Amino acid sequence: MPNRYFKARKPFDLNPHKYDIGIVTGLKKGYEDNLFIYRLFQLPEREYSLYYEYHLVYYLSKFPQGEREFFTFVWQIVLRRIRYIETKNPFNSSHATDMEILDKLSRFQKYLRSIDQWHTEKTLPEIIAEQHEEIVRQKEENTQLKNELKEAKKLETKEYIDIPEGYLLTFLDLCLKLQSTILPDNRKELVFSQTQMVWCKMIAKYFREGNEEINLETIRRYFPADKENPGKKYSVIPPQMRLFEITPSKRRTHSDK
């Protein structure tokens, strides 16, 4: 097998790139796959992508449209070696070393799968491993969702606050006035929200009018995002429904206590 895929070490180069493949005398013809795997075994997992990209760039410099061919070639090298180890007698003297090599190859194969654009065949061990990871991930997500639901239910209630029939707008007027109420000490609003929708949702969820549900869309038109320029789709509270005013009390002194 002539070398065409991987960047080889130059003969007697005493300072080769760490990802070049070959021995001191260079790359012996027919050993390209073995030496690629051999160099891989010397690398930590975090460098797998750098190692692969290094040789891919070299190959594409000669064959610009050859990315799929390069990937397939590397994939087949790894797959053949995995299959070879899996068929070996598990009771031979090199079994421990074989398992270490298999682990390395499986990790590199997992990296290859992550960049696979062509849905290359999967091995049975890989399928089983992926299914196991997916099951673990789903269990973790399920546990998280259950915890979040449990926390959310702490604030849920089947009860509600009832407003006498015909006085919903009076209550909405008080809510709007609360938003305009300024604290005397620091000139900040008594209540503040980023959006008006939070008021609408709160009222629709926790209040009733005459024991009947309050329609969210009905009250939305009384809570414009821009109170100075509410727009045509918003309405104002009729004067006859503005039954209450919110006025600050006189500041208490020590003599009032």
Rank of each mutant, 00 (worst) to 15 (best):
Y58E: 05
T170C: 10
T157R: 13
T195Y: 12
F244V: 13
N229W: 12
H95C: 03
Q240N: 14
Y160K: 06
V24T: 14
Y59S: 00
E130Q: 15
F73P: 06
S114E: 08
R81Y: 05
Q179K: 11
G66S: 01
W75R: 04
L155Y: 15
D98T: 06
D103V: 05
F63A: 09
E213Y: 13
L168C: 02
E133A: 15
E86D: 14
P224I: 14
F70V: 01
L50F: 09
E217K: 05
F192V: 13
F12E: 06
N92C: 02
A129L: 05
T247D: 09
A8F: 00
S93E: 10
N215G: 02
K257W: 13
Q144D: 08
E32S: 15
I101M: 01
P125R: 01
I85Y: 02
S93C: 01
R208C: 08
L169D: 02
Y160Q: 03
F6H: 02
G231T: 12
Q42C: 03
A96M: 04
I101S: 08
F70R: 03
R9I: 00
E156K: 14
V136Q: 07
R39A: 06
L183I: 10
F6A: 01
D226T: 05
S94T: 15
A204S: 08
R107T: 12
Y38L: 14
R4G: 12
K158M: 10
Y58Q: 09
D116H: 07
G22Q: 05
R81M: 09
K29L: 14
G166N: 11
K88F: 01
A96W: 01
P238R: 09
K177F: 05
L149R: 12
H132S: 03
S114C: 06
R9F: 00
L216N: 04
K158L: 11
I214H: 01
F6Y: 15
H132K: 13
K232G: 02
R83W: 14
L172W: 07
I161V: 11
I203H: 00
T72L: 08
L145M: 12
F108H: 04
I237S: 10
S180L: 09
F70G: 04
W199C: 05
F12Q: 06
A204D: 04
P64F: 01
D20I: 02
D103Q: 14
K28M: 10
Y160M: 01
S94F: 07
H254K: 15
I128L: 15
A96L: 07
Y48D: 05
F70L: 01
K227V: 15
V78M: 04
P230G: 10
N34T: 10
Y48I: 03
E217T: 10
E141V: 06
E189M: 07
E53K: 11
K201C: 07
E121H: 09
N147M: 13
K153I: 15
P44G: 02
Q196K: 14
L243A: 04
P64W: 00
T25N: 11
K227I: 12
L60Q: 03
Y48K: 02
